[in-house]
Design a protein around this nucleic acid. Structure first.
Length: 259
DNA sequence: ATGGCAGGTACGACCTGA
């Protein structure tokens, strides 16, 4: 089976890309972030026509997350949870659901704007809430996947210009420390289980020809609990849709599991 | 050092993203 994550930066604009991508990448579960639309505008009809069901938590203008599941291979979702129990939040950044014995979570971690800013404090507090809840989830669900836009580049290999980004938002010790704490709880960065090409990123700035110059960061991750990581046979980032007309600034991350 | 691009809101100019 395949588990994936994609920050689509407006599902309204990116629906054609999503449908096209699913045609060639019929993943079983897909976490989406930055829907930027309300629930009544969620394109459920179009996705169901493509063979996918969905659970979603939308929001006007900002944020919004969803989980798509392939109806042919996945059981119906149960125990749907929106947002973090440990961090009450108006912003829709987390959705979780159970498919059989697999707990799948799609997360849109706070950006943080600038180290030291109010939004950065919100990011740290939000991540602390995630860490707290994750500890409980891992105890409850041996097979757990936490995918999403983490807005954290875990180490310098994940940054096109580590010197320029040193200490900056997405790369600071405070953010990386929390990411490592997450790994310490028992999650595995599936991407690093395998040999990877250098300078593989998942996000490129729209400006300054970021993609053309490969000035990117790897901030979108598929994290797996150990029982799932043991079954993981591949983990890649698909740059292809970043080359399409009017792309999202993020590329999808995909893990393949032998289950 | 700065701004650059894109989406949304709403129809002018601003907010947010990373």
């Amino acid at each position: 089976m395949q588990l994936a994550s994609w920050n689509v930066n407006s599902l309204k604009v990116r629906l054609p890309h999503l449908l096209q991508w699913l045609e060639t990448n019929p993943v079983d579960l897909l976490g989406l972030q930055e829907l930027k639309l309300t629930d009544e505008n969620f394109p459920l009809t179009e996705l169901e026509a493509a063979g996918y069901g969905a659970v979603f938590a939308g929001q006007k203008t900002y944020n919004g997350v969803a989980i798509l599941y392939k109806k042919a291979t996945m059981p119906e979702p149960v125990d749907v949870l929106v947002n973090l129990p440990s961090f009450p939040d108006e912003q829709k950044r987390v959705i979780a659901a159970t498919f059989g014995d697999l707990r799948f979570i799609s997360a849109y971690v706070v950006n943080g704007s600038e180290v030291g800013s109010e939004k950065f404090e919100y990011k740290k507090a939000w991540l602390d809430g995630l860490l707290k809840d994750c500890e409980g989830w891992l105890a409850q669900y041996p097979k757990l996947a936490l995918v999403g836009d983490y807005n954290i580049a875990p180490d310098d290999r994940d940054v096109h210009d580590p010197k320029a980004w040193a200490g900056q938002v997405l790369c600071s010790d405070e953010e990386r420390g929390r990411f490592n704490t997450l790994l310490g709880l028992g999650l595995v960065d599936s991407f690093r289980l395998f040999e990877q090409a250098e300078k593989t990123y998942s996000w490129w700035d729209y400006r300054m020809l970021g993609f053309q110059k490969n000035k990117g960061l790897r901030i979108d991750h598929v994290l797996l609990s150990k029982p799932l990581a043991e079954k993981c046979t591949a983990s890649v980032i698909d740059r292809a849709p970043r080359k399409w007309e009017k792309p999202s600034d993020h590329a999808p991350a995909i893990a393949t599991l032998s289950i």
